[in-house]
Design a protein around this nucleic acid. Structure first.
Lengths: 110, 110
DNA sequence: AAAACATACCTTGAAATCCGATGCATTGAT
DNA sequence: ATCAATGCATCGGATTTCAAGGTATGTTTT
């Protein structure tokens, strides 16, 4: 098993975190930043990322703006007010999750 | 979204942890212990747990013994040598995962 | 200058994972 | 007696994720 398996289920929350901290990010940038912060363990594939971004946008949590970068286009995503709320909640959930994982590693005896 | 979403991808590692710490556990006990340690957030459903236990057994990581408890039967699972190895690796992966999650919450600027 | 790699968007089909519902049986509480 | 909890299990479907493929530009290497 790979460490990356553990990230399943966390992707949406982490994407909201990244965009929230950064202000706005485009897809490819997200994949690179995720790889950095995870010490190479989280490689978000395009088949995962783009449908997720589209879903979050359709849910009203993200908004996007396409801007040219040289001859390329980048599609920048940022949080809507609803997305900011979701991001704040995600942050709390992740913190609680971390504490709970530590309980599993070092459990208080029942 | 629920906190429980975050646990997706961690179930196998956490089950190995629980059984490893405890020595041997039966299915229902696992669901209760997981709920305890996760402050109620991780409710492993039977449709998830039993197939997972069967898979881990077929992979040679768990072995089971059925023992009566009153008029009921409990199926106790414990780690094989291979399972102990997997559990040790899972422990390290979870620790690394925790550190990486913290990076996402409080990233070092790029 | 050709090839290879990185950047940048996307879709599609399949695999894997997980949940809800259901089934059966015993025990304990109301 | 009925309901909740304990204890095992399976099944179908939903969701999530991945691998592969498609298109195109920019950069580096040979």
């Amino acid at each position: 098993m790979r460490t990356s398996e553990l990230y399943k289920g966390s992707l949406e929350s982490l994407v909201l975190q990244l965009i929230g901290k950064q202000g706005e990010m485009y897809g490819y940038e997200l994949t690179q930043r995720a790889k950095e912060l995870s010490a190479g363990n989280l490689n978000i594939t395009e088949g995962t990322l783009y449908p997720l971004l589209h879903k979050l946008e359709s849910e009203g949590k993200l908004k996007s703006v396409v801007r040219p970068y040289g001859n390329r286009t980048r599609k920048y995503y940022s949080l809507t007010p609803e997305g900011k709320h979701a991001q704040a909640q995600a942050s709390e959930r992740i913190q609680a999750f971390i504490e709970q994982l530590q309980q599993f590693l070092n459990p208080k005896l029942a």
